[in-house]
Amino acid sequence: MSEILKVKNLVKTFGGLTAVKNLSFSIKKGLITALIGPNGSGKTTTFNMISGHLRPTSGEIYFENTRIDNLPPYKIARLGIARTFQNLEIFSHLTTLENVLLAINSRLKVFLWETVVRAPSFFHKERLARQKALEYLKMFNLESWAETPAASLPFGLQRYLEIARALATHPTLLLLDEAASGLDAREKDLLKERIIALKQEGITILLVEHDMNLVMDLADEVIVLDMGRKIAQGTPREIQRNPEVIAVYLGEG
């Protein structure tokens, strides 16, 4: 199975603090990989470097053999990486539908002349974009909330909206940063179903998650960080039995 993402000797320092220390790992195409570790272990910092929101102090990141650690976020997104955020990043003043349309329109090829003369092709593309956006909303049972301001959605639905918007950029690699945080049991079940369905559609998923039941149910591979360094990588069963992981994170229970 080919590798879709490679991280090589990644380091990130903030002043005198080293948040990520010589981190190396690879993600296999088509799998669900979980990145876990105690708070402050460098998980979100690693996500931020992969998505271009932070520049590494040193090291290299390759996505499908293209080096991306020197690229801005919008160029990385165009290559096929989408992400959600630990703290919700939605356009609260826009409707649920408009949030997803923005993501679709970022990849939609509309020529200036089509817009100026209001050409039939412009309205055709507009209809297709709206139809596609509604399909993404339907994946998370959000279609009935399409015209609702995003700020008015219950928290769990805002989480779903952020994922739907990320998917609207048509990624091949989806980064989910604590997507289950704040969800109730029913909402987590739907999230789990959707993640499995996305994998079946061929989307590779890298997730940061504190819910170990969800991680062990979903992940094909697990990478464990502690104090910015990788201490283990393997299947969920291997990770559960790793003495160092048990000592620093999972606990004896």
Rank of each mutant, 00 (worst) to 15 (best):
N39G: 06
M227K: 07
K188Y: 01
I27A: 02
R127W: 14
L250P: 11
I231G: 01
D211L: 06
V245A: 01
L176R: 00
A168N: 07
Q200G: 08
I104N: 00
K230W: 02
R107L: 11
W145P: 12
T204Y: 01
L176G: 03
S144L: 14
V208I: 11
A168I: 12
S2L: 12
E193K: 10
N213P: 06
P38E: 01
E178Y: 00
G80Q: 06
G59Y: 06
K192P: 08
G234M: 02
L176Y: 00
V110L: 01
L31M: 07
S106C: 15
R107Q: 15
E114C: 06
V222W: 02
R55D: 04
S51G: 10
T95A: 06
H124L: 15
N213K: 15
K28D: 08
E3H: 07
T66N: 11
E238S: 05
Q131E: 14
A77E: 07
E221S: 02
R159Q: 06
I104D: 10
R67C: 09
L35W: 01
K28R: 12
N70T: 13
Y249F: 05
A247T: 14
A133T: 06
R194N: 04
T169I: 10
N65T: 08
L191V: 01
E244T: 13
S121D: 15
T45A: 05
G16H: 12
I239G: 05
K138E: 15
L142P: 14
L35T: 02
G40L: 02
K12Q: 14
E89D: 14
I104Q: 02
E60P: 11
H170K: 14
K12S: 03
D189I: 12
E89W: 04
T13R: 13
Q158F: 06
D211N: 03
L206G: 05
Q240R: 11
E147G: 14
K109V: 12
K192R: 12
P56W: 08
R55P: 08
F140N: 09
I81K: 07
K199I: 03
I203C: 11
S58H: 13
S181L: 10
L134A: 08
A129D: 07
